[in-house]
Amino acid sequence: MTTPSSLPSLLAVCAHPDDEALLAGGVLARHAAAGARTAVVTATWSPDSHRTAELADSLRILGAGEPRMLGYADAGIPESAPGRARLLDAPLDEAVGSVVRHLRTARPDVVVTHDAYGQLTGHPDHVHTHRVTLLAAHAAGLEHLYPEAGAPWRPRAVYLATHPHAGVGELGPFLARVGKKVLSVPDEQVTAAVDVRPWLRQKWDAVLAHRSEVARERSLPGILARLPADARDRILSTEYYTRLDINPVPGGLTGLTT
């Protein structure tokens, strides 16, 4: 007999292979270890690319099932999905409908995605994945939107992976050194700071599964791989999120309220 998990089921919607490990690897591993259903949708790269094979290894380590690919091209790498539009250029209604289909199939309690900045580095694919996911999380619960995508399902909440100003720490200077942006939010906008040290080995192994990115010096996996282990562990040991409630508030109001 299976005991229900005390943690909610979770679907992460990420821009690229490796984002799942970097932005939510600890949370995914934590929920999977507790018996919660977990899954990951990845917006870019072709399902038959080398990066999808690396993603499959990462998801296996994290206990998050098989890759679920939207198959769009990366903003700066057209060959990532030959013959497909870049995520940034795809019709918005099409991209939202694709995520709605995964939400209605996986039926998660919680959705995790990038924050409005696209996290620290502001990658345009991260920013657009944020927009698409928020629209999809709302649309998935409305029966007359995307009826072909399955029965309606409304997650309880969306969590935006982010960094508070106080949580950037050592990572900021490393990113700035290679010319990357450092975009963080005011500390009070962070509603969950998750200590993932018990799952840090899994998280780091999942990052290492993205071998082609680890080999690149300017990628975040590559930067982290070249740091001393203690500094890397400090950077990866806490995951920060801002919660958005998407369910309606109780009825009975006779006017607008805050």
Rank of each mutant, 00 (worst) to 15 (best):
C14D: 07
C14E: 13
H16I: 12
H16M: 09
E20I: 12
G25W: 06
G26D: 05
V27Q: 10
L28A: 01
R30N: 03
R30S: 06
H31I: 07
A32I: 08
A33G: 07
A36R: 11
A36Y: 04
R37H: 13
T38K: 06
T38Q: 04
A39W: 01
V40R: 02
V41P: 00
V41G: 01
T42F: 00
T42H: 02
T42E: 01
A43Q: 08
T44V: 06
D48S: 15
R51Y: 03
R51T: 12
E54Q: 13
L55Y: 04
L59E: 06
R60H: 10
R60Y: 03
L62Y: 02
G63W: 03
P67K: 09
Y72N: 01
S80I: 08
L87C: 03
D89Y: 06
D89N: 10
D89C: 06
A90H: 08
E94P: 15
V96W: 04
V100G: 04
V100I: 08
H102F: 01
H102T: 05
L103E: 00
R104T: 06
T105V: 12
A106D: 11
V110H: 03
T113P: 04
A116T: 14
A116C: 08
P124D: 04
P124Y: 05
H128Q: 13
V132F: 05
L135F: 11
H138I: 15
A140S: 14
G141Q: 08
E143N: 11
H144C: 10
L145F: 09
